[in-house]
Design a protein around this nucleic acid. Structure first.
Length: 510
DNA sequence: TTTAGGG
DNA sequence: CCCTAAA
């Protein structure tokens, strides 16, 4: 066990070394987040990562031997699975961003990491970006992860593609993967996922050709060719499916809000919107086609599988929509941040932080201009907007972000320093790095803290309170509570009486 | 724009 | 967390 830990730390260190606080490949990949990485896997991973960075971006490099070829494929065996294990597959979106940010940091620090792959990555990323930029994949950052797989046995080779053009980074990762789903499925069912020459995915043919030309033996070539032919989407893991469908409604609401906001013209519209429109639209077509093609076969499938497919359909819809709020929310931060570097920094950091907070919705594919979802049916989308606007009022509590204890402590410190009433200052000083905490948020949180501390103060129902705290996901430590109470007496918040009870000002006070 | 207060 | 009013 200590061995595993050591390795984990080492890998984390290597990957995240340039800037541990904000950006880390480890954060994006969720490496080390779970202990599932075995010692050997870690070794493989670090080697494979290195190799990919050096050779595999933009296509397979030459292989010295059959063994090496297979090794490199095997090296990343857990790669996709890990991404799947991350709370959602859109973590992939951040991988490229993380890479880029990582590179920027490496450059800035003028420090070459131990792996010494940074320059290589950069050039290859750029090459890849400019080379394979196709109409279907142009636009701002989003990610596509698709797997194709040979039909031979259970050892499958897959190609994952990660595009993030918005970050001016496009990366490709080739790996092999053992697809549990297919091995569980009877032979005749395993074809249900096959998609037939999807336009949006035509780049896979290119990948396959890369592979084919690089593959040392005929056997591999065969595999590779089949790979290209039998393009299919990887089915999301069960966990992914469940989480996604759980959040689906929430994201729908988010979109509604953004839509109405955009229609009101209150939200800033920048050039990136247009880009996004294009990219998202293209992606929508791809995913639509994917889902359609899977849908065609739905009749033939058993009920269980039909259910899964239906879920998948919902997922793709949700996936398309999830980025909207992300984009809107980050627009402010992006505007104030410097153009290139800070972009990925902000996004990555946000993603990283959200990763640490279980149960919180993650930020996802940037996605705007839903109206363009159905180019053919413009009127329908208008109707949708109306419907959404109508149901919008149902719940206003959207994109909430759980307050972590460190955050609470920062807030308390800030109040101790500035007192209540200077929330903007506190925000600037204590929460400068977290764009998602507005001064209003801080104030609201302080109000809640006061309430909590006051409730704790009242002895009568202390048992009840403690019960509640137990049930709470993150009960406030007594130390924090105590500080809040101290601070409350030093910096009395206007509407709270000294006694601690929340006093509402009478509206008709004369 | 920021803060206060209500929902 | 969201919204509005007021400063």
């Amino acid at each position: 066990m200590p061995e595993v830990e050591d390795e984990s730390i080492e890998v984390q260190h290597l990957l995240a070394e340039p800037k541990t606080e904000h950006v880390s490949v480890d954060g994006a990949l969720s490496l080390g987040k779970e202990n599932s990485w075995k010692h050997t896997d870690l070794e493989k991973f670090s080697y494979g990562f290195d190799y990919i960075m050096k050779e595999d971006y933009g296509g397979f490099g030459p292989f010295n031997s059959q063994e090496q070829f297979e090794l490199e494929l095997g090296v990343l065996d857990g790669f996709l699975d890990e991404i799947d294990e991350v709370d959602d597959i859109h973590a992939a979106n951040d991988i490229s961003g993380a890479c880029k940010d990582f590179l920027l940091d490496v450059e800035l620090a003028d420090k070459v990491s131990v792996l010494d792959y940074a320059p290589c990555v950069r050039s290859n990323l750029e090459n890849s970006c400019s080379e394979s930029q196709s109409p279907d994949f142009s636009g701002s950052s989003y990610a596509v992860m698709v797997l194709s797989e040979s039909s031979i046995g259970t050892n499958s080779q897959s190609v994952g593609k990660i595009c993030s053009l918005g970050n001016e980074v496009k990366s490709e990762v080739h790996y092999s993967s053992y697809d549990k789903w297919d091995t569980q499925a009877p032979a005749e069912q395993s074809t249900f996922h096959m998609s037939h020459d999807l336009e949006g995915l035509h780049e896979f043919d290119n990948d396959a050709k890369h592979l084919a030309s690089a593959a040392p033996s005929d056997a591999d070539e065969n595999k590779v060719v089949q790979m290209g032919r039998q393009k299919r989407l990887r089915k999301p893991t069960k966990r992914f499916v469940e989480e996604f469908s759980d959040r689906k409604s929430k994201h729908a609401v988010e979109i509604e809000k953004s839509l109405s906001a955009a229609s009101k013209g209150k939200r800033p519209r920048t050039g990136s919107h247009g880009k996004l429109c294009h990219a998202q639209d293209s992606k929508d077509r791809s995913s639509q086609m994917c889902t359609q093609s899977t849908f065609e076969d739905i009749e033939k499938l058993p009920d269980l599988k039909r259910l899964v497919i239906e879920k998948q359909r919902i997922l793709s819809a949700a996936a398309k929509n999830k980025g909207l709020m992300w984009q809107e929310r980050h627009l402010k931060a992006l505007k104030s941040a410097s153009r290139v570097g800070s972009f990925s920094e902000t996004t990555i950091q946000t993603h990283f932080e959200s990763q640490r907070q279980r149960g919180r919705p993650k930020k996802h594919l940037p996605r705007l201009c839903l109206e363009s979802d159905n180019d053919d049916i413009a009127s329908e989308s208008e109707d949708d907007c109306v419907k959404k606007r109508r149901s919008k009022n149902s719940d206003r509590r959207k994109h909430q972000r759980m307050w972590t204890h460190p955050e609470v402590m920062k807030l308390v410190d800030g109040i101790a320093q500035y007192g209540t009433g200077r929330w903007t200052d506190i925000k600037k000083v204590m929460f400068s790095s977290s764009a998602y905490r507005t001064p209003v948020d801080l104030r609201d949180k302080w109000r809640n803290l006061l309430r909590a501390s006051c409730a704790h103060k009242q002895k009568q129902s202390q048992i009840e309170v403690e019960e509640k705290l137990k049930h709470a996901t993150r009960p406030l430590p007594k130390s924090i509570l105590r500080r809040v109470r101290e601070l409350a007496s030093i910096h009395p918040y206007p509407r709270f009486s000294p006694g601690g009870r929340y006093v509402r000002r009478k509206k008709n006070a004369s």
